[in-house]
């Protein structure tokens, strides 16, 4: 019973943390645009917390480079479970157009496990919202994992 309520609450209250990992700002501002009147992702309970300690969903835009991989790892570790990672944009998926640049490690999944991939260059707000909603479904699977 409580499990059910909890899962329901989780799916209705995804607090997000956005981390720009070396994106060109294209996906970044689209993520921010999701919060604004036209897209208003708060309809789904999404709050931009800006703080890993409070976040449920980590939205990562951009490629990982050698310096920010530690940051990404740190942020991921600091998030309390259950948590979902959404990689956004071509660079977040694979490194995109930058993948051959010298300081690029590659996609986000080189560093942390990724649950949802949102393609696009830049990904449109609609796609990002869709990615977040797909991420929510992961909570169904994750309800017994991660928390002891």
């Amino acid at each position: 019973m409580f499990e059910k309520i909890l899962t329901r609450a989780r799916m209705r209250s995804p607090w997000m943390l956005h981390f720009d990992c070396g994106s060109c700002n294209g996906c970044d501002i689209e993520v921010l645009a999701c919060l604004t009147p036209v897209y208003d992702v708060e309809r789904f309970g999404v709050v931009n917390t800006g703080n890993p300690m409070h976040a449920d969903i980590l939205l990562v835009t951009g490629t990982v480079n050698h310096r920010n991989r530690n940051v990404l790892r740190n942020l991921y570790d600091q998030m309390p479970g259950p948590k979902v990672v959404v990689a956004i944009g071509a660079c977040g998926l694979t490194g995109g157009i930058f993948r051959q640049a010298w300081n690029v490690v590659g996609g986000v999944d080189r560093v942390i496990p990724v649950d949802v991939y949102v393609p696009g260059c830049p990904a449109k707000p609609e796609a990002i919202i869709d990615g977040v909603v797909m991420g929510l479904e992961k909570f169904m699977e994750k309800q017994h994992v991660d928390i002891s």
């Binding site: 329901r8 609450a9 209705r12 309970g45 300690m53 259950p82």
Partner: peptide, 16 residues
């Protein structure tokens, strides 16, 4: 009821 969803979710989160 969003605040309640938030709080219930938080209560069920991992203890960190």
């Amino acid at each position: 009821l969003q605040p309640f969803y938030d709080v219930i979710k938080l209560l069920g989160k991992e203890k960190v």
